[in-house]
Design a protein around this nucleic acid. Structure first.
Length: 438
DNA sequence: TCTGGGGTCCTAGGACCC
DNA sequence: TCTGGGGTCCTAGGACCC
């Protein structure tokens, strides 16, 4: 019988996990269409512009992330590449399913992007017999419940978990799960020497080039770098990354409730636009969307930025990429106020002789609605109808679909300017698009 | 013909103040 | 004749991420 009567367990070292879905958009498409298995598949961005997700077969053909679709059509024909338009309704729903499964493993979770989450696991890993075994259990359950393939990486910091995940994905011997904390120091060094410094989370292509010029080439080189030198030459961000690689966690999971500090909505046009009325409709449409996001996080905006872009891939055309920041005297979440503000800005910046390829809006200087400063001339009672109207608009659009109810400025025509020729059905979010078993 | 969309954070430098 | 030095705030731009 144990005589240990200590009341609290010894503190455990932090252990972070990173779980992500392999080739997420492609895997979602394959989940509902078995014919896509083992054939090269790409998913295209809005307007069917660029490749934003690639199956392994497509990666093997050398097609890069972000490659323009029109440039690879010949290659696509030769190899039978299947191209799909992006289907964000489907991907968003599948993402929610994966994240709720992960919440069943650890309550400490940060949904980092549509296809990946960080987790704190030091308090729960022992329930599964260690982080590695837990990673395999996650893989198995997600596979069984959603049919999506995931990889899991574990380490003593977020940066190490990221790197572990990369190892799990690239090396079959890990079978999709890598726990760096369970490897020996010599093994860790072996893997860190094997990968270029550009694989480190937080090192983009510019930093990688500068690091290489001073002899820091591998992940291990960076992990062994001299702190003050890194701080002096590259700033605090990279210094923090070095500490994280040395297993000193500097970044914790982030609070999911943090509201956004800015909200942006922009789109390229299917074809170029010159007419200011048409530009105005697009701007108003974007404001509709942005204001909806703004209200969803219960904030108000104190400024609106509106911008236009001509086609930079046609340098012979007149280029004009103006933008204007328009402050609001009274911060607002009312679509009508924000639309008027944005259209005022648009009229100032637009030039009649230019063809525009893209326009967008940003809502800035956001604050929580309940923390709003009252102005001298405020009449809180006068705000109530606006608030009720916006609540009703959002409720109707939630039920009947985005854009069902919108401002007149956003136009009467349905959104047909965008190209999306190869979109799959919204299998999981529309009754009339449910998959049918025969 | 055709080239995505959305975020965050840090730093340098100028304006301004005392 | 001689023209300082330190601090804050703001903004634009750059770097990174997915």
């Amino acid at each position: 019988m144990s005589t240990d009567i200590s009341l609290s367990p010894p503190p455990r070292r932090p252990l972070f996990g990173l779980v992500d879905v392999n080739n997420f958009y492609v895997s979602c498409e394959r989940a509902f269409n078995p014919r896509l298995a083992n054939v090269p598949v790409v998913v295209l961005s809005n307007n069917d512009g660029c490749a934003v997700a690639r199956s392994n077969e497509v990666k093997a053909l050398g097609i890069k992330m972000g490659a323009p679709w029109f440039q690879m059509k010949t290659l696509a024909r030769q190899h039978g590449i299947v191209a799909l338009s992006s289907n964000y309704a489907l991907y968003g729903d599948m993402s929610n399913r994966v994240m709720s499964i992960l919440r069943g493993f650890s309550p400490d979770i940060e949904v980092y992007s549509i296809d990946e989450s960080f987790l704190r696991v030091e308090t729960v890993a022992h329930l599964h017999g260690g982080a590695g075994a837990m990673g395999h259990a996650m893989r198995q359950r997600i596979r069984q419940w959603t049919s999506l393939p995931v990889c899991a990486g574990f380490g003593g910091s977020k940066t190490l978990a990221k790197f572990a995940n990369h190892l799990a994905k690239k090396n079959p011997l890990f079978d999709g799960v890598c726990d760096l904390a369970a490897l020996s120091a010599a093994e860790r060094q072996h893997w860190m020497e094997k990968y270029a410094v550009s694989e480190v989370w937080g090192v983009g292509h510019r930093l990688a080039a500068r690091l290489q010029s001073i002899g820091i080439r591998s992940v291990f080189d960076l992990a062994s770098a001299h702190h003050p030198l890194i701080r002096r030459s590259f700033g605090v961000l990279l210094e923090r990354t070095v500490a994280e690689l040395q297993c000193t966690p500097c970044l914790d999971l982030e609070d999911l409730a943090d509201p956004k500090q800015q909200i942006m909505v922009s789109r390229s046009f299917g074809s170029m636009v010159q007419d200011v009325a048409q530009l105005g409709e697009a701007v108003a449409w974007h404001i509709d969307r942005a204001a909806e996001k703004l209200r969803a996080q219960r904030s108000v905006a104190a400024a609106v930025y509106v911008f236009l872009q001509t086609n930079r891939f046609r340098p012979a055309d007149p280029q004009h990429n103006p933008g204007m920041l328009v402050p609001l005297s009274d911060p607002s979440d009312d679509t009508r106020v924000l639309t008027q503000t944005a259209l005022h800005g648009l009229r100032q910046i637009h030039r009649c002789d230019c063809w525009y390829k893209k326009c967008g809006v940003m809502l800035l200087e956001l604050t929580l609605k309940r923390q709003r400063q009252e102005t001298l001339f405020d009449e809180p009672v006068a705000r109530a109808p606006s608030s009720q109207l916006m609540t009703a608009v959002d409720a109707i659009n939630r039920v009947w679909g985005r854009g069902t109810l919108r401002t007149g400025a956003a136009g009467m025509s349905s959104r047909s300017e965008m190209h999306a020729q190869h979109r799959s059905p919204r299998y999981t979010t529309r009754w009339d698009e449910l998959p049918v078993a025969r």
